[in-house]
Amino acid sequence: MEIEGKVVVITGASSGIGLAAAKLLLEQGATVVSWSRSRPKISHPDFYFFGCDVRHEQSVLTAYEQTVERLRQNISVLINNAGLGIQGALDTMNPRDWHTMMDTNVNGIFYCTRLVLPQMKKQLEGHIINISSIAGLTGIENMSGYCATKFAVRGISHSLFKEVRPFGIKVTCIYPGSTATHFFDGFEGTGTAPENMMQPEDIASTILHVLQSPPNYHHVDIEVRPLMPKGRPDQKKA
């Protein structure tokens, strides 16, 4: 896809991967729209912010309507990036935490995607990028709730791409490993030191690569991990 001049909507663009992707796509000439609870620290003539909490259907609908009314242009790309994780064993997890993750990581994708697809089908072009996680490919101790949501993202992505590929719409699911964002704040036993994690800009570069792929070339799944999560052997302390 030629992304210059195209409208790209990013959820959760106030920090981390979403913010890095917004900045990179603006550099490439895209018009970037943030559907986030907090306004990203971006000042650019082609950047728009509409306050949105993806957990709530009406909030998403309002952001969508504001986007369409303000830009008067079709949405070509949706990056479902908003997400969060809460640690806890299944039998001790607070049900509120479980529902917060489900509402954000799963329901949010449904609320956003269902609104942009009809127009994408009419224009026979579009790209949905869902940010899952390595936790969407394997179980992790004390992360059962988070894993459940990210496995769901994988299932949604795989089913959706088969539904919409006849309309020229791509659906890509990205599974990042440890990335230096605020996700791990307060987590115990992450196993990877921040200096050995991937950077949000790394994931943003993958998003750009996927978007710029030839029309008949479809990335369905992309798994990315830090090369040396434990650091270089020659740098370890004796």
Rank of each mutant, 00 (worst) to 15 (best):
Y146H: 14
S178P: 14
S132E: 06
V153P: 03
L137I: 02
T100I: 09
F161N: 15
A152G: 09
A63K: 01
I131P: 02
C112Q: 07
K162N: 13
L137F: 03
G136H: 07
H127A: 05
F110N: 05
M101H: 12
S133Q: 06
S76W: 06
I109Q: 02
V68Q: 12
G145P: 02
I131S: 05
Y146R: 07
I75H: 01
R165F: 13
F183T: 00
V116F: 11
A152N: 00
Q73W: 03
V171Y: 03
Q87D: 12
G155M: 02
G83P: 06
I140C: 04
C112I: 05
K122I: 13
M120S: 06
A152S: 11
L124A: 11
T100D: 15
T67I: 03
L115C: 03
I79M: 07
F151D: 09
S133V: 09
G145W: 04
W98V: 10
D103G: 01
L78K: 07
R70V: 04
T181L: 01
E141I: 04
T149V: 10
P95V: 08
R70I: 04
K122W: 07
M93W: 13
N130A: 01
G83W: 05
T138M: 14
A152Y: 06
N142V: 04
G126T: 08
V153Y: 06
S178E: 13
Q73L: 05
G136I: 02
R72E: 15
Q119M: 06
I79A: 02
L71Y: 04
I128Y: 09
F151E: 11
I128D: 10
Q58W: 14
S178T: 08
K121I: 12
S133H: 05
K150N: 11
V68T: 10
A82T: 05
T138F: 03
R114Q: 15
V68L: 12
S133D: 03
Y111F: 15
F161H: 15
I131W: 01
